[in-house]
């Protein structure tokens, strides 16, 4: 695969190393001469000095034959133009832009350019992992209108040892599956929850928090 990356800094350097290590052809376009020299010494990639949003530079860099173009400069407007030129002028099948401002990810989408936001990805990873270790957000369904969440019940949970029908869950919430060791149970009202159970919950966003508090006993 031939990958053309426009940008600089550590992200570009380590991305290039990852791609070349897997045997891909990598071309780097960077507008800083000193950084170009450093990159050319340290990477098994072709390094082109110039403005990647300049149609002439893109052509010289060989955008025409690239399979993927990645635009990861610190300026969203440059990333947009790079991807549009690559797609429309050079017929590159896939172009992906970095949205430095997470709010711009949506703008890229509406303008027909695929984009990702590292800030948004990291924030959501931290939210999922750091808030409560025992809770994993499995997936949002229907654009986030339904949450599917997995919770590990430990001995301190107030619902351990109780029957499902005796636990007063807020409305619009469902204990869908209980995973107990090797067993997978579809629970009924007279199923008892035990410590170590992994409970798969379906909730609506408005009562997601209250349902979690009932099952973990934590105030949050």
């Amino acid at each position: 695969m031939k990958v053309l990356i426009v940008g600089g800094g550590n992200t570009l350097y380590f991305l290039c190393r990852a791609f070349t290590a897997k045997g891909h052809d990598v071309i780097v376009v960077n507008r800083d001469k000193a950084e170009c020299e450093r990159l050319a010494r340290g990477l098994a990639a072709t390094v082109v000095f110039g403005d990647g949003s300049d149609p002439k530079i893109l052509r010289e860099a060989g955008a025409m034959g690239a399979d993927v173009v990645l635009a990861i400069t610190p300026h969203d407007q440059d990333n947009l133009v790079i991807c549009q030129l690559a797609r429309l002028q050079h017929g590159v099948p896939r172009a992906l832009a970095l949205a430095n401002d997470p709010e711009n990810a949506e703008v890229f989408q509406k303008l027909g350019v695929a984009a990702f936001s590292t800030a948004a990805i990291i924030a959501s990873l931290i939210e999922q992992r750091a808030s409560v270790d025992r809770i994993t957000n499995l997936l949002p369904v229907a654009e986030g209108r339904v949450n599917v969440t997995e919770i590990l019940l430990d001995a301190s949970s107030p619902v351990v040892g109780r029957l499902l029908k005796d636990i007063s869950l807020p409305e619009s919430a469902l204990v869908a599956v209980v995973i107990r060791g090797e067993q997978t149970l579809i629970p009924r009202g007279n199923s008892e929850l035990q410590a170590g159970d992994r409970v798969v919950l379906m909730t609506l966003p408005e009562n997601h928090g209250p349902v979690l508090r009932v099952l973990t006993g934590e105030q949050g």
Partner: peptide, 10 residues
């Protein structure tokens, strides 16, 4: 140029 093209498209 790229700022102008961004703003115009938005």
């Amino acid at each position: 140029d790229n700022v102008n093209l961004w703003v115009a498209q938005v």
